[in-house]
């Protein structure tokens, strides 16, 4: 029953159903990180898992394309820079890393955009970074397979 790129029909079917949920779950964990357990790192890892699952289920025999690799590297750097910029803007309020937007209220979503923005920056950085690591190792595996004559 292997009639296309990627894994078997069952895996592809289940992945198609799950992918959206996993992705949204990752975003939620990151966005609500200032209220509930979780945060940018955990959310980023979940998002990266969704991306990894999509490659595993639907990916072809070739390695990831150059465009994808470039996009992931750029996003990774952009996330880190966003975090650094947020920290540097703290000098507006007097000190590195100072919350320059507003101090939050406990248990109110959106009362502290500083933390949310930082979580988003970490989400982008970690999601792209972890996925980039996966892509690098997949690409390496393909090169090794080709050199050692494995199908």
């Amino acid at each position: 029953m292997n009639d296309g790129p990627g894994m078997s029909l069952i895996v592809r079917m289940v992945s198609r159903w799950l992918l959206g949920f996993v992705f949204v779950y990752g975003l939620g964990v990151a966005l609500f990180g200032h209220l509930t357990p979780g945060g940018g790192f955990v959310g980023g890892v979940v998002v990266a898992c969704a991306l990894v699952m999509s490659i595993l289920a639907f990916g072809g025999k070739q390695g990831p394309g150059a465009f994808l690799a470039r996009a992931v590297t750029t996003l990774d750097a952009a996330g880190a820079l966003m975090f650094l910029a947020l920290a540097l803007f703290g000098y507006v309020a007097g000190c590195f890393f100072t919350n320059w937007i507003a101090r939050g209220e406990p248990a109110t979503f959106g009362s502290t955009w500083f933390v949310i923005l930082m979580n988003v920056a970490i989400l982008v950085k970690v999601g792209a970074g972890a996925f980039a690591g996966f892509l690098a190792i997949v690409a390496f595996g393909h090169i090794l397979d080709a050199e050692e004559g494995r199908p």
């Binding site: 996009a71 590297t73 750029t74 750097a77 952009a78 820079l81 650094l84 920290a87 590195f96």
Partner: peptide, 16 residues
Amino acid sequence: VAIPLGAAFLSLLVKA
């Protein structure tokens, strides 16, 4: 720390 980190990630950003 911030200047070297900025330089590190900016050079990664301009890579593409």
